[in-house]
Each structure stands twice: as C-alpha cells, then as structure tokens.
Nucleic acid binder design. Structure first.
Lengths: 224, 224
DNA sequence: AGTAAACGGAGTACTTCTCTCCGAATCCAG
DNA sequence: CTGGATTCGGAGAGAAGTACTCCGTTTACT
C-alpha cells in the first residue's frame, strides 16, 4: 500500500516525477487555502492531473498531507527552541506565539493539522522522536511560559496549555479574516496577549470588524 | 406548507398536541447538546415519535428551531437592554457578556443560531422588528460599550463588534469544555475580558487545561 | 361505530467523499 | 523505432450521511 518511495525503488519515470511534484505543489496551495477538508480529487484537479494519478502517488489525503507538512512541523519545533535563546522572556514567548499563529493564518491546513495532532491513523513523526507537534512543542513552550512568568511580564496563573487554547480560539478568526480580506486575527491575538500580560499594553493592531465586515465574515463561516 | 398554527385552525387532537410538545422538548435537549447540526430524525427518535410525525409538525429543522429559540432571542435582547440600567458601566457590560455566553455554553444550538443569524432562508424575527438577534443586539451593545469606555474601565479602542468576535472565539472553547467536563471556557472568557480592561484584573477562574484534558478536548473536536 | 386526523418508519432521493478499474497515452530500453 | 512496462485519466462504484415522503395502520373524537 506504500506508494511513496522507501525501499530502493527504481527512479520514477519522468512524467511520474513531474506529476508527483505538481501534486505536492497543488496540495500546498489547496490545503493552505481550504484547510484539510480539501479533497484529493480537488487537489488532483488543481494540479491538472487525474484523480487516479493522485491516488497512485499518495494512498490517501493523509499521506499527501504528511509529505507536505513534515517540514513545517520541524520548523515549528525549531523556532520554539530558538525562542528560548531570545533575551527578553516576554519577547521570546510573544514572538514565538505570533510567528506560529501567523504561519497558521497563512495556511489553514497547517492549523488543522496542529489542532488534530494526527492525520487519521497516520502518525506524523516529528524529529523522529515525537508523535505530534503538540508533543514536541510541549517542553519548549512550557519553558517559555515559565521563563516569562519569572521575569514578571506574564501573569502568574498562566500555563503552557493556555497557549494551545489560544491557538484553538484563533482558528475561528482565521476564517473571518479570509472573508474580510485583512488580518483581523491580529487584533484578537493582541487582545488575548494583553489578557496574559501583567503590565499594561499598547494599542491593538488592526481595526475591529466594521458591521458589514462582521456580517460578511459570519456569512462566510456559515458555508462550512 | 405551514403546519404550525397561525390561522384559526381547529384545536389539535390530543395525541397531536402531546407529540408536538414532546418534539419541542426533545428539540431543546438535542439542540442544546449537539448544536444545530442535529437531525430532525434524531430529534424525533429522542422524542419517541416517528420521523413522519416530526415532519408533519414542523416542515423542517429550521421551523422547529425557530419555534424553540424565539423566546431565547427575545430574552437576550431584553437582558442587553436591562444591562443598560446597571449602575457600574463595566459591571453592566461584563455581566451581559458573561450571562449571554453562559447561556450559549449550556446550549450549543443557541450559539449556532446566534452566529448563523438566520436558519437557512427562515427569518427569525426578533421582537417583530429585527431579522436577527445580532441586529437587535447591535444598538444596546454599542451603548454598553460606549458607556464602559467613557467610564474608563474599557480600553478606548474597543468596539461593539469586538463583543461579537469574542462570542465567535468562545465557540471553540464550548466544545472543549464539554469534552473536559468543566467550564474551561470561563477561563478564556476572563482572559479576553482582561485584555479588554484598562485597569488590572483578578485571578482567572477555572484552572488551565491539564495536558490530558487538552488531548481529550482536541480529540473530541476532531470528531466534527 | 364510523370517519377524519395523526402516526410511524421503511424507503426514495439526493449529496459528498473516497477510492478503483481499465482502456488509452506515454516513456524508455534495446 | 518499436514493443512492453509504466503511468495516466476520469467515469463510476460504493459507503455514509441527510432531508423528506408516502401510505398502510392506529388513534381520537362525535
């Protein structure tokens, strides 16, 4: 059932290799725009190849997603560990959270995957050590949170899982941002971060929804 | 197509009247637990009547939902207007937001409906004046927000639509709270409210997710 | 007791998505 | 340049879920 290269298979025929990379590119685009609910059929069509072709290269959507997102996962973990090197503890935490969320805002597939943890039964080994990104992120994020608390910028009753909860909540604002055509999610991330902060904050970035925008956003979300 | 009483119809037969109210009760329960995605078939079964019976009483799910939620809508608008009478402007705003969200946490159908605004093409006239709750709430909520800003407790750059955005974000935490068996949503509402506040805040209510709880919550959300 | 009203739930008619099958097109080795 | 292996393409089979109807049976009312 494993169609992807693992044992020393003979090199792919030229058309096969081309189609494989077309599929990966299309997958990146479509997943980014529509999240993991996108169909393999849809991606195949977007890549300009037949569905059959898609299914020969990737047994299913999960396998394609795993191939596409493996790198992003590693990067995410790296950036969490990198954040620990940042001098200011509050900057370190906020910088990591912001950049992570920005990535997800640009790629709804990434967000879906992070939240789901796994793709069906497919385990997405990160770093060869962890089953899920969440697992791999737990330690560095806990460290970031503890450090920020000690420094005094982060409220004392905050917890690492609060960061996960924030990611979760931000999800809904991504869809709304798409509908509205500007990154409203930034505003609400700041609101949450201001809630997490001890000292007092700056101005919120991004204007609030206008009433029309809000209507548009909610209407768009109705269409599942 | 209108099965519900409007023109001077003859009184319902006893069994019909009983079943109608069984359906309304079952609808309340099922919608509350599973949101609007629940099926009329499901509700009929829960009420202990056949599907056919359900469809004779209510042409479709929308009509049943309209019958069930009309009152809640009126109440919501009333409570917003009542909040304007509360002395302390910050208390008034927070009290309204909190109670509104609590209602939605207890009734996922209500939350779905408020966010959707309409049920398909069915317009859910509120108060006989407005098409949607959101429309009816707009004025009082704007007033609450402005008042809280003048008083100085609410940050100056807040807007009435921010309240809607908060409702939107809270949605995800409801499902998580169900999965975890305690109202974690309260914690995150406070976090958001603390972000909205000018002065400094108290302790967060509710503990953060434990790691296990977070896993359980996200797993539960995966199942659509 | 007779008739109109209401019941029940199997069944039809979608829709949506995943994945297969196989004749046609394409590659590449000799 | 040709023949056999490989890959392509996309109609369509199959599974799953939902919305709603139809009509033989049961129940209520007079």
């Amino acid at each position: 059932m494993t169609h992807t290269a693992d044992s020393p298979t003979r090199p792919l025929r030229r058309d096969a290799a081309r189609n494989r990379s077309l599929l990966l590119d299309a997958g990146r685009e479509v997943f980014a725009a529509r999240g993991l609910e996108a169909t393999l059929d849809e991606i195949a069509h977007h890549a300009g190849v037949g569905v059959g072709t898609a299914y020969r290269h990737f047994a299913n959507k999960q396998e394609l997603a795993a191939a596409i997102f493996a790198d992003d996962f590693e990067q995410l973990v790296e950036s969490a560990n990198a954040a620990l090197e940042v001098e200011d503890p509050w900057e370190a935490l906020v910088g990591f959270v912001e950049s992570t969320i920005e990535k997800q805002a640009e790629d709804r597939g990434l967000h879906d995957l992070i939240m789901a943890g796994t793709m069906g039964d497919q385990s997405l080994h990160v770093d060869g050590k962890f089953e899920t990104v969440r697992e791999a992120l737990f330690e560095p994020v806990t460290a970031l949170v503890e450090r920020a608390k000690k420094n005094g910028c982060l409220r004392a009753d905050a917890s690492a899982t609060d960061i996960a909860a924030i990611l979760l909540m931000m999800g809904t604002t991504f869809a709304a941002s798409d509908a509205v055509g500007r990154p409203v999610w930034k505003r609400y991330l700041w609101l949450l971060l201001d809630g997490l902060r001890n000292s007092q904050c700056g101005k919120l970035p991004e204007a609030a929804f206008s009433v029309d925008e809000l209507d548009a956003a909610l209407a768009a979300m109705k269409k599942h």
